[in-house]
């Protein structure tokens, strides 16, 4: 990790060069600090205009999932498609400014914490269905983007490999790394192989982590989608299926969409905005997402046990695996019970 230069100076220098005018940065505040990225809120004043902005910084490039320029290109494409996202101002790979690669976007006010969003929805009953519908519309706009416009380095299946086959291969590899055999996960993998839907007509841009927790919501509904680091080319149905995972419902289990809306509203929004909904693929990716998250939790426990990432939170993930085994078995129950 390179030494962190003065943040205020670095941001002023970057924006000054971008806008070709002196810039003053004020109201610096940290929104979130994770292992992989920091979000810094600030105001930038140029001439007589003040802009509310956010800098997303990768403090340690070794933790980078995807080059900042690739993520920024996906964000810009989503913006061009009319999907509600923050507007990208610039992206810098050079760590000399703020100690790591970063990009700067507009700052959109609203709620991002899932339980707070569910509280808003509880207070205003028409809001939940509206957000679910807006999520459908937003995803349809993203999926309508010409994949040829995606950044050439964006992750995609190998030549001739369908996203469905790729999805199975990825999980099989994760399952081989399990420290402890899971017959439930073995049955789930078998189910995925046997029920593979027809692949989509073509690959589309897929957000990859579209869920309650990566949305900005206000009293008027969905305002923006955050966190584009898992964006890839793949099967569009993967996005609505991920949004409908039980773990993003925060105990509102009966409301399939993020604990705030129904699949009917999500699908209506998706189709109204021109998307093609494939019910079999939607269900398949839901099963895939549950199995994937279960294997991911087992992987976190393994990272603790192996000493790679010693942490009580990672350790506790191991005792959450049974939740995903249960959800998985329930989702495939009609084929066995």
């Amino acid at each position: 990790m390179s030494p962190a230069p003065d943040l205020k100076n670095g941001l002023e220098r970057a924006l000054g060069e971008l806008w070709q005018t002196p810039v003053e940065v004020s109201e610096l505040g940290v929104a979130t600090t994770g292992a992989r990225r920091r979000n810094i809120l600030f105001d930038a004043t140029r001439k007589n205009e003040t802009l509310p902005l956010v800098a997303t910084i990768i403090p340690n490039p070794a933790m980078q999932v995807m080059a900042m320029t690739v993520e920024a290109a996906s964000l810009r494409l989503a913006f061009d498609q009319g999907m509600p996202v923050p507007e990208l101002h610039g992206v810098w790979e050079d760590p000399a400014y703020v100690g790591g690669p970063f990009f700067i976007t507009s700052r959109i006010e609203g709620e991002t914490i899932p339980r707070q969003i569910l509280r808003l929805v509880e207070a205003e009953p028409s809001l939940g269905p509206r957000i679910a519908r807006q999520c459908g519309e937003a995803l349809a706009k993203l999926h309508a983007a010409d994949p040829a416009r995606a950044h050439p380095d964006v992750i995609r299946p190998g030549p001739g490999v369908s996203p469905i086959d790729q999805g199975i291969t990825t999980l099989e590899a994760l399952a081989r790394d399990l420290l402890q055999p899971s017959p439930s996960f073995a049955l789930g993998l078998q189910w995925l192989a046997r029920h593979a839907p027809a692949p989509p007509d073509g690959l589309t841009l897929v957000h990859g982590d579209f869920r309650n927790g990566n949305l900005i919501v206000g009293s008027d509904g969905l305002r923006a989608t955050l966190d584009w680091e898992l964006t890839h080319l793949g099967d569009p149905m993967r996005d609505p299926a991920w949004l409908c995972q039980r773990m993003w419902r925060f105990r509102n289990d009966h409301l399939e969409v993020g604990g705030f809306g129904s699949r009917k509203e999500l699908r209506a929004g998706y189709e109204a905005a021109g998307g093609t909904w494939r019910e079999d693929a939607f269900h398949w990716w839901k099963v895939h997402g549950t199995l994937s998250w279960g294997l991911g939790l087992a992987g976190q426990a393994r990272a603790h046990i192996d000493g790679v990432v010693p942490s009580i939170v990672m350790a506790a993930s191991g005792r959450r695996v049974a939740e995903l085994e249960y959800d998985l078995l329930r989702m495939i129950q009609r084929d066995y019970a």
Binding site: P183, L187, R319, A322, E325, Y326, L329, I332, Y336
Partner: peptide, 20 residues
């Protein structure tokens, strides 16, 4: 597979009575 599903759902529910 059918027999396994029936056994596994009972086993997993048992695990959940401890874990969650």
């Amino acid at each position: 597979e059918r027999k396994a599903w029936q056994a596994l759902i009972e086993i997993v529910r048992g695990k959940l009575s401890i874990a969650k």
